[in-house]
Design a protein around this nucleic acid. Structure first.
Length: 589
RNA sequence: GGAGCCGUGGUGUAGCUGGUUAACACGUCGGCCUGUCACGCCGAAGAUCGCGGGUUCGAGUCCCGUCGGUUCCGCCA
């Protein structure tokens, strides 16, 4: 066979192709050698098809070559597509109604026996899969996940292009800034002792692009953060980064809402309901105990402080007196939990910082609870009424400071929702969380720090509180949440010079310090900055959710381990003495 | 920085209260086989039990340390 270039993908062949002659290229997925007849499942990125080697159609010489085929050999075959005989259709294969009767074989590359079977790679130890990532990439799981990643970015690009956004690249070698995450750092050879930082996000550059008149910008941007990893956090990750000029909060949110709905339509074929529901930060905390609620299930938090503030149960009375809150959730049907199960929940709540977990099992005509004897009848009634608790339900109550109670009940809610199977795995619940606090008090630093970043604008109606009660100022910020995962967040930026100064003052920066850190940036605002705002989405997380994977490692072609190593290329690695010398770097012992 | 889980032929696992020959399946190699599709049948090779130390007459098994992977908390927008 002179010409071995493919005419068809393996996985495309259907009954309608029967009779045609094709050339296929691919890997030997599996070989079944019956002696005078050999079957091979041939694999390329589109899928599998069975090819048949028969000495009568192939000739003895080529058949002998076929006998030598092994797993992962790269071959080209020419042959006729034939419908499979009656009773030999394989319903587990998309191409199962046909097979290719090979008339000519070319071995394009032999292969060592792979360290793990490609079609069962998911069962293999992850460190081995990462070392041989290029083999794992051949698996259907990764092929599909990365194809979906491509379709998502393609949908994003086509949508933003249609709306007049320009994709602009920003530098990777930038200046380290003290706020935010730890920077990855790159030494400069030309400037010994000086270092670049890799960007945590293109934040400042996209704002400068607005000042530069680009009006609508986006970038599928790589970002770097030198912090400890998680299943949904890699040291380098990708953001869909967007910024718009001459807009208010509504305009940005509406545009981004349309973009995400477009992605769902294009990639998943799902028309999600518009508009995306909105929740204030405060309401999210009150009802779900978190700033990124999973709204696929109920189990909402209810406040009981007013009903229980005069309780004989000392914990309640003291909590209320100390400006704390008493809140609870109703676990439907939870009264049947064993004592052991309840104790486990209680231990978990305490591990999260709660002083204790109070429970009430609602039974016919009474409640069973360790604190039953302290509760007056009207108090029990108030609890069951507020939580709509019925016979068979279990009420869980936490008392303490507002933040702690929200946090503990929010986590309990998620734990129970997961364990009781309350989440619809096929649902996609999008949500905007708005009206974030502008500033949060950092105990460690002894000052307020920016909840989002120092260039986020306050709500107009809260601006006057910036000096008197900074903790109460809300921001023109918004986060998009999908099934309890933060997909992205952004804000309208400060473009007023005087307001920016007040913001820095609230953060405890003198104008001198601010100028030293962000001088070029502040100066830019003196040359006519349009009102602007934007957002950044975590692309890896979005793909992870749409592809239904447990980790963003499964949607990144070459991911790093939890200790930020690449097991395939063995990075990071020491550099040579000569390189160090050139950089004028001495290593400390 | 802290806590949990995992590490046994190439792969996935078993290995009891410590006991002398480390078991099974898949894969690999050789042989047979013309309708298999996780092909089948027969045979064979293949393991310093992650690494180091300790306890013990004796350690895959118990203890300590360490390395790697992973999950979570801290950290991270």
């Amino acid at each position: 066979m002179k010409d071995w270039i493919r005419t068809k993908y393996c996985g495309e062949l259907r009954k309608s192709d029967a009779g045609s002659t094709v050339i296929l290229n691919g890997w030997v997925n599996r070989r079944r050698d019956l002696g005078q007849l050999i079957f091979v499942d041939l694999r390329d990125r589109s899928g599998l098809v069975q090819v048949v080697f028969d000495p009568e159609t192939l000739g003895p010489e080529q058949f002998q070559q076929a006998e030598g085929l092994r797993s992962e050999y790269v071959i080209a075959v020419q042959g006729q597509v034939v419908a499979r005989p009656e009773g030999q259709v394989n319903p587990n294969l998309a191409t199962g109604e046909v097979e290719v009767l090979v008339s000519s074989l070319v071995v394009l590359a032999e292969a060592k026996t792979p360290p793990f079977p490609i079609d069962r790679a998911e069962e293999v130890d992850e460190s081995l899969r990462l070392k041989y990532r290029y083999l794992h990439l051949r698996s259907r799981e990764l092929q599909e996940a990365l194809a979906m990643r491509h379709r998502i970015t393609a949908a994003v690009r086509s949508f933003l292009d249609s709306q007049g956004f320009l994709e602009v690249e920003t530098p990777m070698l930038i200046r380290s800034t003290p706020e935010g995450a730890r920077d990855y750092v790159v030494p400069s050879r030309v400037h010994p002792g000086s270092f670049y930082a890799l960007p945590q996000s293109p934040q400042l550059f996209k704002q400068l692009l607005m000042i530069g008149g680009f009006d609508r910008y986006y970038q599928i941007a790589r970002c770097f953060r030198d912090e400890d990893l998680r299943a949904d956090r890699q040291p380098e990750f990708t953001q869909i980064d967007v910024e718009m000029s001459f807009v208010d909060r509504e305009a940005v949110m509406n545009m981004m809402e349309a973009m995400i709905l477009h992605v769902f339509r294009e990639v998943k074929g799902i028309d999600l309901p518009a508009p995306i529901p909105r929740l204030s930060y405060r309401e999210a905390m009150d009802r779900f105990g978190t700033d990124k609620p999973d709204t696929r299930f109920g189990l909402e938090i209810h406040d009981l402080t007013a009903s229980l503030k005069n309780s004989e149960f000392r914990v309640f009375a003291e909590t209320a007196a100390a400006q704390g809150v008493i809140r609870g959730i109703n676990v439907k049907g939870g009264a049947s939990f064993t004592r052991r199960q309840i104790d486990r929940l209680s231990e978990q709540a305490q591990a999260w910082g709660a002083k204790g977990l109070i429970w009430l099992a609602v039974e016919e005509g009474q409640v069973r609870s360790p604190i039953a004897k302290f509760l007056k009848e009207e108090e029990v009634e108030a609890i069951t009424k507020e939580l709509a608790a019925e016979v068979g339900d279990l009420v869980l109550i936490v008392a303490g400071g507002y933040d702690l109670v929200c946090d503990v009940l929010g986590r309990l809610r998620l734990l129970l929702g997961r364990e009781l199977g309350l989440m619809d795995e096929n649902a996609y619940n999008l949500l905007w969380v708005v009206d974030w606090p502008l500033l949060v008090y950092d105990e460690e630093a002894g000052r307020y720090v920016a909840a989002h970043h120092p260039f986020t604008a306050p709500l107009d109606e809260d601006e006057h509180l910036l000096e008197t009660d900074p903790g109460r100022v809300r921001a023109k910020a918004y986060d998009m949440v999908l099934n309890g995962v933060e997909l992205g967040g952004g804000s309208i930026r400060i473009t007023n010079r005087r307001l920016q100064e007040r913001m820095f003052a609230a953060l405890g920066f003198t104008m001198e310090e601010a100028r030293r850190q962000f001088g070029y940036f502040l100066e830019a605002f003196e040359y006519g900055a349009p009102p602007h705002g934007g957002i950044a989405f975590g692309l890896d997380r979005l793909v992870m959710l749409l592809a239904k994977r447990q980790s963003i490692r499964d949607v990144i072609a070459f991911p790093k381990t939890v200790s930020a190593s690449d097991l395939m290329i063995e990075a990071p690695a020491p550099i040579s003495e000569a390189q160090l010398k050139e950089l004028k770097i001495n290593l400390r012992n």
